[in-house]
Simulated scan of single mutants.
Amino acid sequence: MSTRFRFTASPSPRAATGRVAGVYGQLARDFGLRAPDTFVVLSPVPELLAATWALMRESLIVGPGDRTGKELVALGVSRANRCPFCVDAHTVLLHATGDHALAERLARGERPADEAHARVLEWGERSRVPGALEDGPYPFPRAHLPGYAGTALAFHFINRVVSALVGEDLLPGRAQRLRAVRSLGGRALARTVRRSAPPGDALTLLDRPAPGEAPAWAGGTPVGPAYAALLRTAMAGADLLDTDDQGPVVEALLDRGGPHPPLALPGFPGRRERPGARLVLLAAPAPYRITDEDVAAWRRPDQTDDCLVRLVALGAFLAVDRVESALGRAVRSGEPSRPSRGAAGTSVARPVPGHLLGGHG
């Protein structure tokens, strides 16, 4: 996959060292691609890159549950978030699992023929709306929740980063729209996708969070510390916001919910008045609406690519947290239930700066 970044000039994978090189090595071994754009774009912030990879690896690749089912969750989430890059990528990965007919039905916009597959896909699509994951029953065994939920949360984050910072096309010339290309791409990845890999390897790349920071729904699996690490690293971007912007940004995101905003973007800050807050608020519901003008209005000489990546990651994770906090409420109550207004957003404060948010729920 060639690099097609929108606003950053990410370092060449060939020059990678340290933690970044470690991530690329695991990507090649366990994902089948050494440096896909989805991860290279995060490389200016190595700890964020490692945490994102860890959550995806420990849930989608080696977490509990069927790989086809988790690919359907990733695809459903990507559809809901309007991320064509990721939709196309997971269509190819379904070919890699051997589910060729299913992949092509989805590529044509059709519903899966298998009702169990359809329910899993729809669960992923619904998860964009805060509180939707509280509605039951789950379309998979309860024991597989860490793998399925971790996959959904990973791609709510990855979709937003990709939509903000990477082009829409998975391959040059939209070659992935050709059935033969999708099939060949899947077959090239098939051996890696179908190979078993040990859980927990990605955790060696992290600054490990305290054991109590792992969410309860992760059930003691490596998905938990991977999620906690992503929370820590993504929320650190709050330091890039002016103090006066931090509270209003959080409140605005709590009020917006899951719908995609209209083209006019009513209620969003202007580029000149609060450019950093505007980028964060766009990254949460509509990262594909971030423009050259938005980035230019925010950028100063001291704000390098890593600052932009961190700011987008903050907005992306604030959206992810709304989904996760609803899931956490359902797990704590013991059964999926109807959502309750106003509780979303409480979980983001567990390890983040106290000046940004209140206590953890």
Rank of each mutant, 00 (worst) to 15 (best):
L253S: 05
P269L: 04
P262T: 14
P275W: 13
P266G: 06
G276D: 13
L241D: 04
L281A: 07
P262K: 10
V250I: 10
G224D: 09
A236G: 10
G258R: 05
L263E: 14
R274A: 15
V249S: 01
L254A: 14
G257L: 09
R271I: 08
V250E: 14
A277T: 03
T243S: 02
A229L: 08
G258E: 08
L279S: 04
P248V: 10
R272W: 09
V249P: 06
A236T: 05
D242W: 02
D242M: 10
D245H: 00
L282T: 04
P259Q: 05
E273Q: 15
L253D: 12
T233C: 10
L282R: 07
L240P: 10
E251M: 04
G270E: 12
G237H: 12
R256D: 12
V250H: 14
P248Q: 11
H260S: 13
P259E: 10
E273K: 09
A229N: 03
P261I: 07
A234R: 07
R232L: 13
A234P: 09
P262M: 01
A264Y: 02
T233H: 15
V250P: 00
L265Q: 01
L265R: 02
T233Q: 13
P225V: 09
H260P: 02
T243F: 02
D255L: 13
A234C: 14
R274D: 03
R232S: 13
A238F: 04
L265W: 01
P222N: 10
V280W: 01
G267V: 03
A238M: 05
A236S: 15
P266R: 13
E251A: 14
E251G: 14
P266L: 10
G270C: 03
A228Y: 12
A236V: 09
T243H: 06
A252E: 10
R278S: 05
A283P: 03
A238K: 01
L265H: 03
D245Y: 00
T233V: 14
G270Q: 05
A228K: 11
A228M: 01
L282N: 01
A228T: 10
T233M: 04
E251P: 00
P225S: 11
R272L: 14
A234Y: 05
D255R: 15
V280L: 11
L231V: 11
R256I: 12
P261C: 07
P262E: 15
P275I: 13
P261G: 03
V223D: 06
T221G: 05
R271C: 02
F268L: 09
L231F: 00
L230V: 08
R274I: 00
V280R: 08
G270M: 02
V280I: 06
H260F: 09
A229K: 12
D239N: 08
L240S: 09
L279W: 01
D245K: 00
V249E: 00
D255W: 06
R271H: 14
Q246H: 04
L281S: 05
E251Y: 04
Y227P: 01
G257Q: 07
R271D: 10
A234K: 05
D242G: 13
A236P: 10
F268N: 01
G258F: 04
P269F: 00
A277C: 01
L279C: 02
A234E: 09
R278K: 08
P259K: 02
R272F: 13
R232T: 08
M235P: 00
A236D: 15
R232Q: 12
G276N: 06
A236K: 11
L231W: 01
R256N: 03
R274E: 07
